[in-house]
Design a protein around this nucleic acid. Structure first.
Lengths: 284, 284
DNA sequence: GCGACGTGTCGGCGGCCGCCGAAGCGTCGC
DNA sequence: GCGACGCTTCGGCGGCCGCCGACACGTCGC
C-alpha cells in the first residue's frame, strides 16, 4: 500500500514549472507520468487524458491573492500598466512584475510594451469567460456596506459598467430584459439569439448576422451579474452591442474606471429601439 | 510608491486559511481589507466587491496536482473511497486524507462515512460545471499515443462514457447531433431545448417539461468533449437523458469505470427514437 | 475477542513561494 | 545629455505546503 518514493520526480516537476518559457500559451507542458498510469491504480482504466498537471498549473496562477486581484481588475477588459496594478493590489512594483510574468507565461494575460510602460490585458474572451465562470461559483460578494465615498462610486458601477467586453450592471440587465421581452433573446432553456434578434442586430445596430454566427465564441451567452444577481447578455452579441453603444455615444465611460453612464442621446435611442425608460429603470 | 508593510496581515490571512472550519461551503470567509480599498489605489474606484481572496482560496484547492487529480477522477460523478483515490494518485493514505479534508472544507466535495470507509463525491452539478469549464480552457489533451492495453480501454471511453451526470464521448455527441437534426435542440446561438425538444422528453422519455424548466441549473447546456472536440448535451436535460437510458438498460456501465456501452435494446431504441444507426456511428 | 484494514492525527523535513529592497536598464521629458 | 521614471533582476527572508512514516482509533470479519 505504501506508494513508491517519488520525491525526486516531484522535485523535477516543480523545477519544470518554474522554468516555463515565455510562450504565453495555455498549452500542455511536458507531462510526467503519474495518476492512473501504473499498475497501482485500483479503479480500472483511468484512460482519460491526465489533465491534472495542467489543471493544477492553471489553478496555481489564480491561487495567489495578488494574482487573483490582478485578473479580476483586468476583467474590465482594458489594458493596465504594471505600475497601476501594483498600486491597486498594494504590492511593490518588483512583486507585481514577477506576478505579471507568471500570468503572461501561463497564457492568461498578454502584454504590450510601449515605451517604458508594460501594458497588460486579458488574453482574450476565453480567459474572461474562464474567470467569470470561476467567480460565479464563489459565494455572494463580500460585504454590502463599505466606506462612504466608495458608496457613490459603487452606485455608478451598479448603474452600468463594462464586464470585459460587454455591459453589466443595471444597464446590462435592463437591456437583456428588454431584448427578451421583445422576443430578440430567448432565455427559456439557455441563452439564445432568436431570428428576430439577429434581424434586430442587423437593422438597428448594423451588425450583420454572420458576425453573430460563426467561430468558437458563442453568439449569445449569459453572464452572471454580481450586483444584480441576474444574467446579462455576453458573448459576441454582447460585445458588439457594447461596442456600438460606445461608438454612437449612447453610453460613455466615466473617468478611467469601468463604470459607464447613459447619455441623453442614448436614453432617447434606447427608448425608441427597445422601449427602455432610462430614468424609470434607474439608469441615470 | 513603497507600499505599506503588511507582513503581519498576510500572516493572519494565511493562518485564517488553515483554520477553516469544516463547514464545507464555498462561502465567503472573513475578508481582510486590501485591493482597491485605500487611497493608494491609483486607478479610480475599484468598487467591485473584492473577490480576490475567495478566488485565490478556491483556486488554491485545485492548484495542487494531487487534489486536481482527485477532482478530475471524481468528475465521473461516482463516489470514491479515500483509499481508492490515494492509490489512483499514488500518494500515501495519510496524504490523501489531508487533501480530502481540504477539498471537503472548501466545498468542492461532500463526504459520506460508511463503516470504515470514507466515500467522497463532487458536491454537486455546479462543481462539476466549474471543473468542466476550467478544464475546457486547458490545452488539448496530453498525448495521443499511449500504452498498448490502455488503448483498448480508451477506445471504449471514446465510444461512450459518463461526464459527471450526463453522456459524453461519441455516444454523447451523436445523441446531441441527432437531437439537433430533429429540431429538438437548438445550437444556433447557444444551447437551447426547443418546444419540440420538451415534448420529446415528455413523450419519449417520460420526463415532464417542468422538470426541465426550473431552478438554478440550466435546462440545456453544452459541455465540451475532450475526445470529440465537440459539444454534447449537459444540464438538467443531459442528466435526465443519461438517467433514463441507464434505467431502461439502453446503455450499461462497463465494469467499474466511467465507460458505458450501448446495448442491443438501446441500439434499437435509439434508431426508433432518433434515427441513430449505432454501428455506423461507431457506437458498438 | 482478536487481528486485518481503512482512515485520521501528528511531527518533521524539504522545497517552493510570495514578499521586499537594492541595484540596473531602457525610455521619456526637458 | 541628464535626471526622473517605469520596470526588471537578484538576493534574501519568512512562511506555508505537500509529502511521508509512525501511531492511534474505529470498523469489519472470523
Amino acid at each position: 500500500m505504501t506508494p513508491p518514493k517519488r520525491t525526486g520526480e516531484r522535485a523535477t516537476q516543480r523545477a519544470g514549472e518554474r522554468t516555463t518559457e515565455r510562450t504565453g500559451r495555455l498549452a500542455t507542458q511536458r507531462t510526467t507520468e503519474r495518476a492512473g498510469a501504473g499498475p497501482a491504480a485500483p479503479s480500472g482504466p483511468a484512460a482519460a487524458p491526465d489533465h491534472s498537471h495542467e489543471l493544477a498549473r492553471l489553478a496555481a496562477l489564480l491561487a495567489d491573492r495578488t494574482r487573483a486581484a490582478f485578473c479580476l481588475a483586468l476583467l474590465d477588459g482594458r489594458a493596465w500598466t504594471a505600475g497601476e496594478l501594483a498600486g491597486y493590489a498594494r504590492v511593490a512594483p518588483s512583486t507585481a512584475s514577477e506576478h505579471l510574468s507568471r500570468l503572461v507565461d501561463g497564457g492568461l494575460l498578454v502584454e504590450r510594451r510601449q515605451g517604458r510602460h508594460r501594458y497588460v490585458q486579458l488574453a482574450g474572451p476565453r480567459v474572461a469567460e474562464l474567470l467569470e465562470s470561476v467567480t460565479a461559483h464563489l459565494g455572494p460578494p463580500a460585504g454590502p456596506p463599505r466606506g462612504l465615498r466608495a458608496a457613490s462610486a459603487s452606485a455608478a458601477l451598479a448603474r452600468g459598467r463594462t464586464c470585459y467586453d460587454h455591459l453589466a450592471g443595471r444597464l446590462g440587465v435592463t437591456l437583456t430584459d428588454a431584448m427578451t421581452a421583445r422576443g430578440l433573446l430567448d432565455q427559456e432553456g439557455g441563452f439564445t439569439l432568436t431570428d428576430a434578434g439577429r434581424e434586430w442586430f442587423a437593422d438597428a445596430l448594423a451588425v450583420p448576422a454572420d458576425v453573430l454566427r460563426g467561430g468558437r465564441r458563442p453568439p449569445a451567452r449569459g453572464c452572471l451579474d454580481w450586483t444584480e444577481r441576474r444574467q446579462h447578455l455576453a458573448g459576441t452579441a454582447g460585445a458588439r452591442l457594447c461596442e456600438r453603444l460606445l461608438e454612437r455615444h449612447w453610453i460613455r465611460r466615466i473617468g478611467t474606471g469601468r463604470a459607464v453612464r447613459l447619455t441623453p442621446e442614448g436614453s432617447t435611442a434606447l427608448r425608441e429601439l427597445l422601449g427602455i425608460d432610462g430614468p424609470a429603470a434607474g439608469l441615470v
